[in-house]
């Protein structure tokens, strides 16, 4: 399958300065001086990041720089100890919220390695997730028929085979199918803040395009996206407003799409950095 559209034309790079000025809305996410340990080892060391509604931020960095740690801390994984710092999400103290509450309030993490849950039907799982959120919002839970209607519509976004809905969650899915299943979950849950942790890893070009289209279709003025990635490649399809370079637990550089291209060409240049530090 060939997709002709070039996302560049669809979504030209926006002058981030100008866009920033136009975006006078309150931040979706505000991370201040975040310090995080994993098993007493310091991973994040004073990270600051502010994201406004509608913005797409790419976070790049070498292995072990703390990218996945940041994603997991935002989602509320307990194995990460926040030793210092604050995270505000839509004006609420995110660190005070339980994992499930964060999800119901609109924080979504697309996993780097989506885990299998044998015996649990994918559809049942998706319905349980959506209904948990709906009941939190005081909405009526969807019944099986309404949910089926919804999912049939959403599944088109990710060009996923309907058969996968009737299998156990991620069980026996190919790498690409797992990632598409993550995007499907995102499409169903319609989060305010989506964190995509290396969603591009292990995808061939076709799969990357499908997943990217899925992500692009979910871009909205009310939704912020954090794209955690190793490679510039996905940014050709999902064009970010900002690119940040994370190294040694801090954001060391920020810029726009051009920064990602520069990194691609020249590398992270960390050797220079360590010499200068």
């Amino acid at each position: 399958m060939k997709i002709k559209k070039t996302p560049f034309k669809l979504r030209p790079i926006v002058n981030s300065e100008r866009r920033h000025v136009n975006n006078n809305r309150k931040p979706m996410l505000e991370i201040q001086n975040l310090h995080v340990n994993v098993e007493d080892k310091k991973i994040l060391d004073g990270l600051n990041l502010t994201i406004k509604p509608g913005e797409v931020h790419a976070i790049m960095g070498p292995n072990g720089s703390g990218k996945s740690t940041l994603a997991n801390v935002l989602a509320g994984r307990e194995t990460y100890q926040v030793t210092h710092g604050k995270i505000q999400f839509g004006g609420q103290d995110l660190l005070e919220m339980s994992t499930e509450l964060r999800s119901r309030e609109g924080v979504f993490l697309a996993f780097q390695n989506p885990i299998e849950i044998p015996g649990v039907n994918n559809m049942v799982f998706l319905k349980a997730a959506l209904n948990a959120k709906r009941s939190h919002q005081g909405l009526e839970e969807l019944d099986a028929a309404d949910f089926l209607k919804l999912i049939r519509q959403k599944i088109k976004t990710v060009k996923m085979d309907e058969g996968l809905l009737h299998r156990s969650v991620n069980e026996g899915f190919s790498g690409g199918e797992k990632k598409r299943n993550e995007i499907l979950q995102m499409a169903i849950l319609e989060p305010k803040l989506a964190i995509l942790d290396e969603t591009d890893s292990g995808l061939d070009v076709d799969a990357l395009q499908i997943v990217s289209e899925g992500i692009n279709s979910l871009r909205s003025p009310d939704r912020s996206i954090i794209l955690v990635t190793h490679y510039q490649r996905i940014l050709n399809y999902v064009v970010p407003d900002y690119v940040h370079i994370l190294a040694k637990g801090k954001i060391i550089r920020s810029g726009d799409k051009a920064l990602a291209l520069e990194i691609e060409e020249k590398g992270y240049g960390l050797n220079d950095l360590s010499q200068s530090a």
Binding site: T99, E100, F111, I115, F125, A129, K133, V169, Q185
Partner: peptide, 27 residues
């Protein structure tokens, strides 16, 4: 039932108890 499975469920808004119940019923 692994921590990872529970975390996935919780990250999708499903409480740990409901997650266990989903997994056990699937089993």
């Amino acid at each position: 039932i692994g921590e990872d499975q529970l975390f996935l469920c919780q990250q999708r808004g499903i409480s740990a108890e409901d997650a266990v119940s989903l997994i056990v019923n699937g089993f």
